[in-house]
Every structure is written in C-alpha cells, then in structure tokens.
Design a protein around this nucleic acid. Structure first.
Lengths: 221, 221
DNA sequence: TAAACATAGATTGGATACATTTTCAAGCCT
DNA sequence: AGGCTTGAAAATGTATCCAATCTATGTTTA
C-alpha cells in the first residue's frame, strides 16, 4: 500500500530507461519481456507498453514477432546525433538564458568546480548532465527540451565509454569550455554562449571520431 | 486471408496516423480506445500500442488513467517546431545532396511545376511534402530523417490551415523558393541549397506568426 | 561434408475478462 | 439557489489464456 499501483506502465518505463542509461542493460543486448515482467513484478503487458515508449525514444529496437534489443549506435549514427546537437542545443540555450532563475545561475560555477573534482566517471557524467540541463532550465519548451534529452539519452553509453578513455588534455579542454560557457551565460551574452556551446559539442564529436575503439569495445560485450 | 494479420498494431498505428494527418481526427479531439478498436476491427490492446507509438511521435497526448487526445499545438509551440526545422533540415539536405539518385534529380523541376498547377490544397500539400522528402532521399540517416518527418507531421494541421488562407503573393514566393532550391540542388551547390532552404522555412515561420487566426480556427472546431 | 529442410521449442502478439480509476450527474446540505 | 458530496456509469489499466510467428536444433539428402 506504500506505493501507488496506478500507472504501472510508466513506472516500468522509467525503471527500464534508468537501467539502460545506467549501463545495467548494454547496447545490443536482447530484452525478454518475461524477464522484465518478473523483475519489475508485473505482467508482460505494461512491459510491452514500456518497450514501445522506449522504442520511440530511440533507446530500444523492436522487431515485430521477434523481440526487442537495447538500441546500438554505429559510429556514423553517433556522429549524426552530435551534428544535430550542434545545431539544436545552441537554439535551446538561446531560448533559455533570458529566463534563467537566479538560483540556477548561482549553481553554474560550483557545478563546474565539482566536475573538476569528480572521482568516478559516473559522477562526472551525472554532473555534466546536470550542468547542461541547468543551462536549459530557463526555456519553457515542450518539444525542443525533450528532443535534446532524447539525443543525450541515446548517446549515453558512448559518452561513458568515451569519458573512460579520456586523456588528460581533452579533460582539461572540456573543463575550460564549461567554464567559458558558464561565464558567458552569467554575462547574459547569448551569442557568445551559443558559440561556445557549439564549439564544445563539435570538439567532442571530432574527438570521438578519432576514437572509433569506443564502439568496438561495446560491440564485443 | 487477402490481408496479412501479422502486426495488427503497426497497421492500426499507420491507419491512425493517416487519419490524424488527413484531418479526419482534428487537434484537441478526444480519442476513445473502444471506438478505434471497433473502427479498425481489433481489440483495444493494439489500439493502446498504436496510441503509445503516436504519443512518442508527438501526434497524440496520453494522460494516464484518463484518456487520449489528438495533439494540439499552440502558436508558440508551432514556431518552435519551425525554428528547429530551420536548423535541422539544411543539415539533412547537406547530407542528402551528394547521394541523390539521377531519377530523383529528374523529378525535382516537374514537381515544382506540378505544385504551380495544384488544384486543391490537399494536392499542393502532398506535392510539397513529396518534393521536400525527395530532396532528402539521398541521405541514409536513421535518426535525422525520422526527426524531420516527425516535425512535419506535428505541424500538418497548421500547414493545411495556413495554405488555405494563403495569399497570392506568398504563394508565388513559395513557388520561387522551391524553384531556387531545385536549381541549387541540380547544380550540386550544397551551401546555396541550404541557404535557400533555411530562408524558405524562416519565411514560412514569419508569415505564420502574422496569421495567428490559423490557430483560433482550429481551436473553435 | 555441407547445405537444405522439417520439426520442436520458445517467444511474441492478440482477445477476453476483471479490477481500478475517473468522470459526470443527481441529490443533499448550507 | 449555489456549491459540495456521493454514487453510478463509463473508460482506462492489468492479468490470464490462447494463437501465430520466429529461432534453433537435429536430421536427411546431394
């Protein structure tokens, strides 16, 4: 009775999404409806609903009458996502900056510092996500925000793998870009902030293209 | 036996999408699962699957334990879609042009002419969609193509309403832009083609912002 | 020996039936 | 008379059961 039984499907959707994003389910891995049904203590129907939702989010691949797999991105597909991000996220940032709350502004630089001192990769990824999403929190968008979140989600595995083999130099570059971005936002300079963000995403994409082993590592698993 | 029973859910998804895009179901209208189940000669389960898929496409709004409605866009949300299109479609076009088949190139200008002679609004909309999708047919993208198609779908109603009250001058402008776009593509000038396309979408967006009655008309229905 | 076929097993898809939630309207109280 | 409460009806969410489809293994044949 402690937990509401209402909306079991959405609960499973969120749990499954978290499991995929968290790395518990790896790209290319097959998903069996019965296994999930048992794991989450429900019937196969809400599981099917969840799979359909996640398929539309790009996290799951559904083949009729055959089964479901955790979505797997090729190097080219991943680059495609980053190219779209380059064009879409500066727009979202532009919509967001004028509406940012003071409380959000106050947390920007502390988050940058926290990222510098992050111990594990997981912690860095979480802080990085929190930082960028915070910069978007001023935009009241129904569609664009969800799109950006989807783009982040679909590349989550590769961001983790990439962060793992990140060299010292690229790490310092990322921190500098984050700080530049935060300062531009604090100045309210939308143009400059957008430019820095574009460069940040582009740099990551080019860096990623020089490390195709990120994808082979995942393929082997 | 004439029709395959396999994948009833996907069949219903496509039929329902076509009904929404075709205007049979109007924005804001409530969708009852039983009604659809009876209309398409199936149980409520595949209908639910279809609704979930379409919700992720942005064509349907699902509220847990309450019901489903045909998605409705406000003026601001519609502008948002167009702003995203301005940034994303030139990218898709850039990826497409180098890979366009000769057969596709041969159909570009005839389609522009066909649009000039379109009798009904529906015919114009269909040709317009065919033309633009043809310009994207050279890109082998898994995600970006689907994204663009979704963006088109969600604004389908408003494109129709807008085309209905289109003035003579804007109509001629649109035809000129289409012809310019086709010529740039035939020249293989990716940069210019992207510029023309960006201008084309932006012009439409600004034109749309000057006709907010498009949205009131739909609200009343 | 290798390739193709057939059969058995497993898995997904759909239909019916039931529990839960929401909504709407009538009745009651203020 | 108006607003709130209560109860019934309708619609959604879930579980169980059955049918259709795909995969894999083992067998047979060229």
């Amino acid at each position: 009775m402690a937990e509401k039984t209402a909306g079991s499907a959405v609960r499973i959707t969120e749990a499954l999404r978290a499991d995929i994003l968290g790395g518990l389910l790896r790209p290319g891995e097959r998903i069996r409806q019965e296994v999930l049904a048992e794991r989450y203590g429900a019937s196969r129907l809400p599981v099917r609903d969840a799979l359909r939702s996640l398929e539309a989010e790009g996290l799951v691949i559904l083949v009729p009458n055959t089964g479901a797999w955790v979505a797997k991105l090729s190097l080219d597909e991943c680059q495609e996502v980053y190219q779209v991000r380059e064009r879409v996220e500066p727009l979202l940032l532009r919509m967001s900056v004028p509406g940012l709350q003071q409380s959000a502004l106050d947390r920007l630089l502390p988050l940058v510092e926290a990222m510098r001192g992050a111990a594990h990769v997981e912690e860095f990824l979480a802080l990085d996500r929190e930082f960028h999403m915070l910069t978007y929190s001023g935009a009241e968008t129904t569609m664009l925000g969800e799109l950006v979140e989807r783009l982040w989600n679909t590349t989550q595995h590769y961001r983790r793998a990439f962060a793992l083999l990140g060299t010292e130099r690229t790490a310092r570059g990322i921190h500098l870009e984050h700080e530049l971005l935060a300062l531009a936002i604090l100045r309210g300079d939308v143009e400059d902030a957008g430019r820095v963000l574009l460069g940040h995403i582009r740099t990551t994409r080019l860096e990623l293209s020089r490390h195709p082993e990120v994808f082979h590592v995942l393929d082997g698993a």
